[in-house]
Amino acid sequence: MLRLIDLQKSYRLGQTSIAILHQINLSIESNEFIALMGPSGSGKSTLLNILGILDDYDQGEYWLDGTLMKSLTETRAAQYRNRFIGFVFQSFNLLSHLTALENVALPLRYLGQSLHERTNCSKSLLTQMGLEGRFHHLPTELSGGQRQRVAIARALATRPRLILADEPTGNLDSSASREILDVFSTLHRDGATIVLVTHDEEVARRTQRTVRIRDGRVV
């Protein structure tokens, strides 16, 4: 489903260029649940950005669901992100002036769906996340766990191929964390492909496979 072949990325700093990722080869099958681990500065975030089509790379290939993701224009990258990727962030990243329902509906708007379609779709996703009474609440009126569930519903909205979760439990207490990890497990059981970045071995243990990154290499 997802293949990285000899992927390289370096940043130019003045005259010298600093390699962040060396010869990454990684393949993720459909319906896999993977933990991505590594100390800070290991290149983990850069890899996640590349997987999320937020960043480009220098050499190698990134195939996502049979499509090569390379040297895309901003517009094309935005369209692929919209259709292929669902993001879940550590700090939720909900738009504070939009209600739960409007937040979930946002990617569907960029997909070009009508208000009616996206409202129905968003309502069913929020219901699925156990938030049926919270459609018209603003993010500030929700608890941390509830906010993250809104964010997961938003990540699922366009039925993406890949869910990328960056420390999704990093800002949550232990019970809310468990709750969110249960949600990911359920999604996985229902067929989703998930890449979850974490520092926490406990969290990693709940996934199928752990990919460790150190100094820009998969170890």
């Binding site: 517009t75 935005a78 992100r81 990243n93 738009l95 960029y110």
Partner: peptide, 16 residues
């Protein structure tokens, strides 16, 4: 800026 970043991550094109 952050809001614009979120929108872009969710698939907003530069034109949008």
């Amino acid at each position: 800026t952050r809001e614009i970043g979120i929108r872009k991550a969710l698939g907003a094109t530069p034109r949008t």
